[in-house]
Write a protein that binds this DNA or RNA. Structure first.
Lengths: 179, 179
DNA sequence: CGCGCTATGTAGCAAGTGCTACAGATAGTC
DNA sequence: GACTATCTGTAGCACTTGCTACATAGCGCG
């Protein structure tokens, strides 16, 4: 299958794919290496340590997420904040984001412990999302920045409800947004 | 020191305390046992397996959370949904909830993978919270159930922002709530 | 007393963890 | 060709993981 250099850069996408599928919590060197077509030995060689690998991986995932957002749905403008939030929830629920979301909650949990790498990745992903949300607000929104923040809280809250199996609570909550 | 029977029931509070302090992800039998004053051998004896222990522990934590909420602040009624959300965020930020929140995001991450025990615990905790939120809405709220859901989305979103180090985003978002 | 039940300690196992020491291969440079 | 720097495979180490086999204590009951 043509195995060229296998540097950090060629490795990262495969590692990210594995982590998106199997989660970050239980990811250990040997399975990761197998998925990427190398050995644990080489992962340490390229990334210095597992911590280094995880940090690089989190950065990479944040980048992937940003481009996934960029590619996703430049739909016509929403009619209201509520309408906007409901559409964004629907997009977030699309299959292409499912594995991102599973990983997202792991990253949030890691960030909650204070880990710097997790925080950086989470903040980067959230920044992308806030900008993207802002771009999807109704064009006549009185305060797009604040509006995007409110919509982000509500949509993230609803996605969390999805994660814990209470999707309808999220829907009901969004429906109660002003607009 | 009085070390009476040491049954499941006497063990669970100590195990919960350890998990609240050190997290659930890296919790392994031997440290847990040490913290609870037993051996890994006895944990397996009482709970059957680690899965059994985690399940019991999650149930117990959900119960603890419910009583923590019950004890917390029966403040005077809020003036609006926004006011309510801002107060509840302040309460959620209080030190006594910090370790609960760290654990909460771990539970959400576990639930996001589809694990039944994590989902059950998360749903139980969220149900307590929704009821509690509903009780704190302004008494003239037109639709308390929907209002509580909206407030829950926003507050949980804001707490998530806290977890990833973007607390001001949460504050700005809540400030944009109608009210 | 003796029997059986529950509770507990000691040792250990097979698997997996991150990481390292050592050796070799390859390739580019003088 | 000799030397050096980059890359990679093989083995292994010390440790942790969940869990088990075995033995033993204690206690209630006939």
């Amino acid at each position: 299958m043509a195995d060229p250099p296998l540097s950090r850069e060629t490795l990262l996408p495969r590692l990210a794919a594995h982590v998106l599928e199997h989660g970050l919590a239980g990811a250990s060197l040997r399975p990761l290496a197998r998925a990427a077509g190398t050995s644990d030995r080489m992962l340490i060689y390229h990334f210095g340590s597992k911590d280094g690998l995880v940090t690089a991986l989190l950065e990479h995932v944040a980048g992937m997420y940003a481009s996934a957002l960029e590619m996703a749905y430049p739909t016509e403008p929403a009619a209201s904040r509520r309408d906007c939030a409901q559409r964004l929830l629907a997009i977030g629920r699309a299959p292409m984001f499912a594995s991102f979301l599973r990983l997202w909650w792991e990253i949030v949990a890691g960030a909650a412990t204070g880990d710097a790498a997790f925080r950086a990745s989470a903040a980067a992903m959230m920044d992308s999302q806030l900008a993207w949300f802002e771009a999807h607000l109704p064009p006549d929104d009185p305060d797009p920045k604040a509006g995007a923040r409110l919509v982000a809280l509500a949509v993230e809250g609803a996605l969390m409800m999805d994660a814990i199996g209470l999707g309808e609570v999220g829907e009901a909550g969004l429906a109660a947004l002003e607009g």
